[in-house]
Design a protein around this nucleic acid. Structure first.
Lengths: 286, 286
DNA sequence: TCAAAAGTGTTGCACCTACACCCATGG
DNA sequence: CCATGGGTGTAGGTGCAACACTTTTGA
């Protein structure tokens, strides 16, 4: 169904459901009809196929964040409670608009800092993984919104209470979350799949850990995200024999995780990929 | 650098460099300020951080396609010659605008059909892989364009001569391409990396083959994309012992690839992932 | 009869799995 | 002392790399 009103004049309804002012974007010149990605017109006055002025209906571009952390042996995801219709009161992924002069990744880092209460520098150092872009025309009932989804992996952080938007944010156990607003259920599932897969063949797991960590903590990341138990001795060998995965912290003494023998500390190494990969146990059989 | 003209009125220059009419999109109502991905305003009249009316500057959303095929033992990519400034005469990835009522994937399939001259049904069955979204504010010198990149894998096709945009399209050897317009060099490299990686742990290689293929053809896909030689006997065993990767075509006799013993024919199986993966030879050592 | 590609067999190594066992600490 | 987690050792299995070999076609 085409939106004919875009060709006949402004559509009705400019009010914001949340009561905020609804600024009208000014009319703007049409793009040239051929962009970095658009089909270039052939030589001559021919109008290329697929060209439609409606194509220039402005899209809103946003980012959605699936922020994961491992907390008390469970995978948690950062969710925010919606304060406006639609889905008022529902939980949703944090996110926001991409501003005119920023890239989607910068927008994602900005939102990440806002929602977690971290400084922009700290947030800038965190691992951000672009997952997918969601562009179904009906994914937002109010307007056309194209959203770039990012997965962020953070070590265990305090409950977000940084003021601002962070006040609405909560760490929620991944498997105890309720239904999410919009298509955020799908986005979160995709992000989870991506993270699980990347643990297999990259050093990504260290992104869930503080700067210095024990092999037990690192192993718990795998076990928590994958939902399996790994053999401790074998995991240790695999990590230590993969060059560049971790590097020992020599001078530092040892740290205990409550009971048991104190463990040696490690830092993330320089390597980014694992060769050969560290396959999930199910991968062997499935 | 902000584009002040968007807040002060229409900017100059509405004409298309190619001489086509430059339709002006009508003014439209502002979005509610909170979208499926936008920060929901907190309870109360507070204006959430990060809110900026400029965020509603309309973005153009496009798709870019990296269409790969294996031809005469070389990896080829489909490129189009630009017929308008900027980058007039340069080569670029095919692509185009996402229309108001279609998803990015549907737009990609539509463009794929247009550029290759295939029917929409045929193109609809081809493998499309969303690679990444490119959103640098300056990636197009004329306006803000956010582009969703897709990689498409097709079996060897005739030279695109379907009329329309396809007339400008050419199959180009991947390693003999010139510099590309915009950031398409980066997009193409990302798409190539993704395809190469996915060959390792998915059954994607069959997408490069016709419906019925020999194991030699399948092996050549790997060898061509990865740029390595694989041991024929070991490759055969790996493929045949991976359940669901390929299934033999019983009744069909055999087919020759020129000289040599005729080979048995196979079809793609039902599996989509490879467990354990088929690692690149370098993966073992690197 | 030779080149080229398909297909089978075999050996050895690399890596992973599983499990047994010792070490160090807190209760 | 024992429970808990860190750390070491070792035997067996799986799967892959490497390479030798036979088969079947076209030139």
């Amino acid at each position: 169904m085409r939106r004919a009103e875009f060709h006949t004049g402004p559509a009705p309804a400019a009010g914001d459901p949340a009561g905020r002012p609804g600024p009208l974007p000014p009319c703007r010149p049409a793009p040239s009809g051929d962009s970095g990605s658009a089909p270039a017109p052939g030589p001559g006055p021919r109008v290329p196929e697929g060209y439609d002025p409606g194509a220039f209906e402005p899209f809103a571009v946003t980012v959605d964040l699936a922020v994961f952390t491992v907390r008390e042996g469970r995978l948690h995801v950062l969710l925010v409670e919606r304060g406006a219709e639609p889905y008022l009161g529902s939980w949703a992924l944090p996110g926001g608009f991409v501003l005119p002069r920023e890239s989607a990744e910068r927008a994602a880092r900005r939102e990440l800092a806002e929602e977690t209460g971290l400084s922009e520098e700290t947030a800038g150092a965190l691992h951000l993984e672009q997952v997918r872009t969601y562009s179904d025309p009906d994914r937002d009932p109010r307007m056309r919104v194209v959203s770039v989804a990012y997965a962020a992996l953070v070590p265990d952080l305090p409950e977000p209470r940084g003021g601002g938007d962070a006040a609405r944010a909560r760490w929620t156990p991944y498997d105890a979350r309720g239904p999410l607003a919009f298509d955020h259920e799908l986005i979160l599932a995709d992000a989870y799949d991506r993270v699980g897969a990347k643990l297999e063949y990259t050093c990504l797991a260290t992104a869930f850990c503080p700067p210095e960590f024990t092999l037990g903590e690192l192993r718990q990341v795998y076990e928590t995200v994958w939902g399996v138990e790994l053999d401790r001795p074998n995991f240790r060998r695999k990590v230590l024999t993969t060059p560049g995965f971790v590097q020992a912290v020599e001078k530092a003494p040892r740290r205990t995780g409550g009971r048991g023998k104190p463990a040696a500390l490690y830092r993330a190494g320089r390597a980014t990929t694992l060769h050969p990969p560290l396959l999930r146990p199910e991968g062997r059989t499935a």
